[in-house]
Simulated scan of single mutants.
Amino acid sequence: MKGTVQFSAALVLLALAFSFATAYDPSPLQDFCVDLNDTTSAVFARDNIIDYHFLLVLHAVLVNGKFCKDPKLVKAEDFFFSGLDKVGNTSNKEGSAVNLVNVDKLGGLNTLGISLARIDFAPYGLNPPHTHPRGTELLVVLEGTLNVGFVTSNTDNRLFTKVLNVGDVFVFPIGLIHFQQNIGNTPAVAISGLSSQNPGVITIANAVFGSNPPISIDVLTKAFQIDANVVKYLQSEF
């Protein structure tokens, strides 16, 4: 009994170590693992060892938070999404709209480490500076002309920027702040591929000035070297 407990504890520790050490989406060990919203019918290995079941649950939660749908119940619709032909609503302050197809919209992406997005731009519209904490982005322009760029980390904050025309491709490394702006007087469209099933997005201005609860005005005035009234105004805008 003591040996079983020690072995189970070792398995749990191993799962934790693996989860923390894994920096990217896990590689699949099966053909597919379609995301299952109803976790009560999740399928695990046919094994009567309760500790092994617990290990599988722990691993699934810590790595990607998704459970596998029974392969016998998987349908073609689990690998299908329709809607990227539709123009996004760009009638907002930024003049842009992002339609992200990630694992939450397409269950068949689970464990495959990839997603994509359609980005629409109004004339002179902007997809403001943001980061994807879990994915590198590869962008191709379908319509219009975009000015794009990213900034390196705090070592030198170097800006890499480029004007893209139809058919041009640009890559934004994982985690780095980047942007895209339509520099034409006609709408623009781009498609982005991302190296994560759920890359996440942190829009810099929204996160800094629109956090809930708000970041201390004293912190922001010192960080940006601006007047407190400016900070209050910016916070009110978000």
Results as ranks from 00 to 15, higher is better:
N127E: 02
I183R: 07
V151Y: 12
D168L: 04
E137N: 05
P123F: 08
R158T: 15
T131Q: 13
I191P: 04
T161I: 09
P199N: 13
G200C: 13
F170C: 00
V189A: 04
V171F: 07
Y124H: 15
A122H: 06
L164Q: 10
H130T: 08
Y124R: 14
V163Q: 05
P187G: 00
S192G: 08
L146E: 01
N182I: 08
Q180I: 10
P187L: 05
H130V: 12
N165F: 13
S192D: 03
Q180R: 10
G184H: 06
P123A: 11
T152L: 13
G184A: 12
I202W: 06
T161V: 04
T155G: 09
H130R: 12
L146S: 07
Y124K: 15
I191C: 02
P128N: 04
V141P: 04
P199E: 12
N157H: 14
N157A: 11
I119P: 05
P123M: 12
L164A: 06
I119Q: 01
F172M: 02
V148S: 00
R158M: 15
N182S: 09
H130I: 12
V140C: 09
G167S: 00
T186N: 04
N127I: 01
L164Y: 08
H178E: 10
T155S: 13
L126E: 06
L142P: 00
I202T: 14
Q181V: 10
K162V: 01
I183P: 01
N185L: 03
L138F: 11
S192Y: 03
N127G: 03
V141N: 00
G135Q: 08
Q197H: 10
I174G: 00
T161D: 01
N185E: 15
Q197I: 06
